[in-house]
Amino acid sequence: MDTTAAVLRSSDGPLTLEKLHIDDLRPHEVLVRVVGSGICHTDLGVIAGHEPDQSPIVLGHEGSGIVEAVGSEVTTVAPGDHVVLSYNFCGECDNCVEHNVPMHCRKFLELNLVGARLDGSTALAHGGEPIRGHFFGQSSWAAHAVANEQNCVKVARNLPLELLGPLGCGIQTGAGAVLNTLQPEPGSSIVIFGVGSVGLAALLGAVAADCRTIIAVDIQQSRLEQATKLGATHTINSATEDVAARVRDITGGPGAQYSVDCIALPAVLRSALECLQSPGVCATVGFQGMSNEITIDQGHLLFGRILVGVIEGDAIPAEFVTRMIDLYQAGRFPFDELITTFPFERINDALEAAHRGEVTKAVLTFDTYSRETETETESAEQ
Results as ranks from 00 to 15, higher is better:
224 L>C: 13
219 I>F: 07
204 L>R: 04
283 A>Y: 00
297 D>V: 07
124 L>I: 01
279 P>K: 04
189 S>Q: 03
146 V>N: 01
322 T>G: 15
272 A>M: 03
258 Y>N: 06
364 L>D: 05
66 I>H: 06
322 T>S: 15
338 L>M: 03
211 C>V: 07
215 I>N: 05
183 Q>C: 13
208 A>V: 06
79 P>N: 05
328 Y>H: 12
278 S>N: 11
72 S>R: 10
170 G>W: 03
62 E>H: 10
4 T>P: 02
340 T>D: 14
269 L>C: 07
323 R>E: 09
245 A>H: 09
287 F>T: 11
208 A>R: 11
132 R>I: 06
267 A>M: 13
169 C>N: 06
84 V>C: 11
382 Q>T: 13
329 Q>A: 11
315 A>T: 10
174 G>E: 00
175 A>E: 02
43 D>N: 13
305 R>T: 04
102 P>G: 08
206 A>W: 05
29 E>G: 08
197 S>L: 02
347 I>L: 15
67 V>I: 05
237 N>P: 08
219 I>N: 06
96 C>R: 07
229 K>M: 12
334 P>I: 07
299 G>Q: 07
248 R>K: 14
9 R>M: 13
77 V>K: 03
254 P>K: 10
77 V>S: 09
49 G>H: 14
189 S>H: 05
149 E>N: 08
327 L>Y: 11
13 G>A: 13
171 I>L: 11
255 G>F: 02
27 P>Y: 02
255 G>E: 04
154 K>F: 03
225 E>Q: 15
2 D>G: 04
286 G>E: 00
188 S>C: 01
74 V>G: 03
377 T>Y: 08
259 S>L: 03
68 E>N: 10
72 S>F: 03
112 N>Q: 02
20 L>R: 01
348 N>A: 08
182 L>T: 13
32 V>R: 03
